[in-house]
Design a protein around this nucleic acid. Structure first.
Lengths: 335, 335
DNA sequence: ACCCCTTATGAAATCGTTGTCATGACGGCC
DNA sequence: GGCCGTCATGACAACGATTTCATAAGGGGT
């Protein structure tokens, strides 16, 4: 591979000067610069990122740790984050936990040796901070930014860019309550997902604001993940039991689709007999029939905030530890 | 960061010996090994991957270049590939083209300096091989494996692991034909997607096998991507024109969902008045209502083949240039 | 005319590993 | 008993960039 010394030789300067031309912040005479640039051009030289990383002590890539990239919302996030990082000259390395939290720890321990510039935590897992915080601190001590983009970790000192899950759930639940159909059910991972938990909290708040009790029979804490089959199963069971409710809010769009399917299978009309609202705002949910009403999350806004975070870090500017991106209920047919 | 020399000092050996203990293929006395291992343990030493990459001339990460990770099938692929690579001690860096082909070239040019071990091409774009082949060859010359995991590039000398898109489309189209509903329509990106093109070819083959003509009015070559809105629009327009057809095969599940929605919106019963089959086999499509019949692609199998490819490369074994993974029509309600 | 400061550049050290070469010790064989 | 081959280990160079330190030239102020 053509290296800086090849360029230097050709331009009849020292390697240091080539580096200076590239860095651009140390004065180099116009004439020398032109010669170096020409040599670079002719040789097709590209600075070796690995060598640079070693020398300066950190690389140009950021890891995105997801719980399950197969879930639409994480894939969407990954797309936007990658695009945003790219404008900053940063690469994205993807680490998919697959819902096994122990792997997070292993990954974190490996992070410093990979020369990462930052780690984006987008796993919804409820983290055992007793165990994780020391590892995360030690990663941070190596100059690697740890940024949570799913759950609020600002209380533990880690900057967080999060959706307003609570607010979104409050809005959606209130909307359902306003239609006057009586009891509203909730499906989601509650015990095992910090995000699901936040959405559940919003659901509870909305009910309490109306002076309503939370009916445990209408709260379905699933554990198999956020996929459609889990939603279908939970809903089908509730329906089979003859539970009285005519609306359900799901903690993901996939879950909501499963709920809609179970209701339809039971002969229920949506939204006539059963209203369903999802969470996520995936591109295709408007094309389910009936079109799904959902709490849309703005992955683009999250990504932009991530970009700003890294930009601010470069320039030394200080940003708040916590940034909340609003969630919007988009009304369609299902509720 | 604790380095090999710290370990060496502590274990009272030279850095070289520490390296040897870690590499494990050079004899080291049991006593020394124990001392080194103990020092590593006590200091919490982790070899610096960046330095190693620089020294050995290649790193431990593989890039996955996707057209649009937001499309379910690519996210699914990313998940499986990441999991598979991880078992080989390899990391995944994600590069999402966002359907702009020129960025592929830029990425490829950057690849050698990133110290990648391989590049997985999963963009469905029809590539201008006149332009790209030289760049790809030069990347390969740097010891970076280029592996296509979406379209067949084996004719250009690049190993390819692909789905049997043609076969899948033949099966699906034939199935539709067998239901005796007459003309079958096709939606997908044809001119701009090699994968869409392959599926279209399968569609054509199936028709020809029955001695049927291809009706251009029933072939909708979309350009806006594979998303649900495009499918909805194409279908809605065809229906508005009063075209006579009672079945449609879509080149992606998202597209198919859009088609189903358009048909439903028009008051058509699925599959009674209109049969729809998708392509992909995403986890949620079985929960659309009616449940979507789709040509399921096996992302897990692709990923395993990718894993085998890299394993074989380590051991020096030679694998075929082309590997085809079967696609299975899974029958549900929509067709 | 002298001194000092700025500007432009080169030499060399450095980041953390790995691999080559050299060295010393030991055992076996003739 | 001497020689050679093997084993274990250390010293050192190298990967390719950046950065510090040093040096030289040129210009302005007094």
């Amino acid at each position: 591979m053509v290296s800086v010394v090849a360029v230097a030789t050709r331009a009849k300067v020292s390697p240091a000067t080539v580096s200076r031309v590239l860095a651009g912040r140390v004065p180099v005479s116009a004439e020398t610069r032109a010669r170096v640039l020409e040599a670079i051009e002719q040789l097709g030289y590209r600075p070796n990122e690995v060598a640079r990383s070693l020398r300066v002590g950190r690389g140009r890539s950021v890891a995105l740790v997801t719980g399950d990239i197969e879930q639409g919302i994480y894939a969407t996030l990954a797309k936007h984050v990658q695009g945003e990082l790219e404008t900053l000259g940063l690469d994205l390395v993807l680490f998919n936990l697959g819902h096994r939290q122990d792997r997070l720890r292993h990954f974190l321990e490996r992070a410093p040796s990979l020369g990462l510039r930052g780690v984006l935590l987008s796993s919804p897992h409820v983290m055992d901070m007793e165990e994780l915080a020391p590892v995360m601190k030690s990663v941070a001590k190596n100059g690697i930014e740890i940024l949570s983009v799913s759950q609020d970790l600002s209380g533990h000192g880690f900057p967080s860019i999060i959706h307003d899950d609570v607010g979104g759930a409050v809005t959606a639940t209130t909307h359902l309550l306003n239609t006057g159909r009586g009891p509203v059910a909730f499906v989601g991972r509650i015990a095992t997902s910090a995000i699901g938990r936040a959405r559940y909290d919003g659901y509870c708040q909305a009910l309490k604001a109306r002076g309503l009790e939370i009916d445990p029979a209408l709260v379905w804490d699933i554990s198999q993940g956020y996929r459609a089959d889990a939603g279908h199963q939970a809903m089908a069971e509730a329906l089979a039991k003859g539970l009285r409710f005519r609306a359900v809010i799901a903690a993901s769009d996939e879950l909501a689709l499963g709920c809609m399917a179970a209701a339809t299978d039971r002969g229920l009309a949506i939204p006539g007999d059963m209203a369903v609202v999802g969470f996520g705002g995936l591109a295709w949910v408007g094309f389910a029939r009936p079109a799904m009403t959902t709490v849309a999350l703005d992955a683009g806004a999250i990504a932009r905030a991530v970009g700003e975070f890294f930009k601010a870090r470069e320039s030394g500017a200080k940003l708040g530890k916590r940034r909340v991106i609003p969630a919007n209920l988009v009304l369609r047919q299902s509720a």
